[in-house]
């Protein structure tokens, strides 16, 4: 039986119950799949080229990656590694982005060409090493480079990648116009730029000669099987080698993306199925969905309704008594 009194009593009772539920903090036990990332940054000399709107490629990479990390949901873990020579070196294993954002940002800012333990920049081999490392750490790879191989790749091209690829993104940094590479002296002071005679313009003369060697000037099948076309070139200038990086990415389950496309594009590319390699490693973490605002809103609604409950006790005194 619904007497008018219980209709009047229901809203505040409901409000009390909802508010109490909200105070107890109920939540849905949802889970969320997160993908950790190992950011490997090329620290070779060509990353010093200042062709990113006045910033050097390293500085531009720092700024963009910092924004990207700030964008990641709490619980995601990001590690940092550097690449030079033919391998990568992990500075620290993935750390949680919210608790250790300051650490990540400071470490990105501290990346410097001086960390490079050797001057070579064998990107395809470094990339393979970084992929192996990311696979060990169960993280996706974000490889930041300009694609400038130094010394140039052998005529046979890069090695084929064999093994498990954790997937990820190759983040291309650099402009499209070849720009000079700053040169530093022994004490780390900038001393001009690399000139055409400072660098090697073609692969070392080992292994099979190029296919078009016959048409090259100075070619002789026995005495000069490589020709002389490899004595000069433009390897002392550096631009983003997007085609090379695209090719490397395609063979390794990675996605190529330009840094200039921004952090959102990086997040999208990192999550894309094409960037999954041979199986992206996801980590499932509890992400409870807080229901207290929902109950709080219901309580508010009930309380407001309560003030507008029918106020007249129109029934006879006997019905309005202690019926409930």
């Amino acid at each position: 039986m619904r007497s008018p009194v219980s209709a009047r009593l229901a809203p505040p009772l409901a409000a009390a119950a909802f508010a109490l539920t909200a105070a107890l903090g109920p939540s849905l036990p949802l889970q969320r799949d997160l993908r950790d990332a190992l950011i490997t940054v090329d620290v070779t000399r060509s990353m010093n080229v200042r062709d990113m709107n006045g910033l050097s490629r390293l500085e531009a990479a720092h700024a963009a990656l910092r924004l990207w990390i700030a964008d990641q949901p709490c619980g995601t873990r990001v590690g940092l590694a550097i690449f030079t020579e033919r391998r990568s070196l992990t500075l620290f294993e993935p750390v949680e982005v919210c608790a250790d954002f300051a650490t990540l940002s400071a470490a990105l800012a501290a990346l410097d060409w001086r960390m490079a333990w050797e001057g070579d920049s064998m990107i395809s081999r470094g990339l393979d090493h970084a992929l192996k490392r990311a696979e060990e750490l169960k993280a996706g790879l974000i490889f930041v480079t300009d694609g400038h191989e130094a010394p140039p790749l052998p005529y046979s091209g890069p090695n084929r990648f064999a093994g498990e690829s954790p997937g990820g993104v190759i983040l291309g940094v650099g402009g499209d116009t070849p720009s000079p590479i700053p040169k530093f002296d022994d004490l780390g002071r900038e001393a001009g730029f690399y000139g055409p005679h400072d660098v090697q313009h073609a692969p070392a003369r080992v292994g099979p000669p190029p296919a078009d060697a016959e048409s090259r000037p100075g070619f002789h099948p026995r005495n000069n099987p490589y020709g002389e076309a490899d004595l000069e070139g433009a390897e002392h200038l550096s631009a983003l080698r997007a085609d090379h990086l695209q090719e490397l990415a395609a063979g390794r389950g990675l996605v190529f993306l330009r840094l200039s496309e921004g952090p959102q594009a990086l997040s999208a590319a990192f999550a894309a199925p094409k960037a999954a390699g041979t199986g992206a490693r996801m980590r499932r973490i509890p992400a409870p969905f807080d229901l207290s605002p929902f109950f709080g809103a219901l309580a508010l609604l009930a309380l407001l309704v309560g003030w507008f409950a029918p106020s007249g006790l129109r029934s006879s005194p006997s019905a309005s008594g202690d019926s409930s």
Binding site: F92, E93, P94, E96, A102, A107, A110, M115
Partner: peptide, 22 residues
């Protein structure tokens, strides 16, 4: 062959542990 700063002075135990683990 070259010195590299891995982690600036910090109190974050998780970051120090991650750097040592590496």
């Amino acid at each position: 062959t070259a010195p590299m700063q891995v982690l600036a002075l910090t109190q974050s135990r998780s970051a120090i542990a991650a750097a040592i683990a590496a």
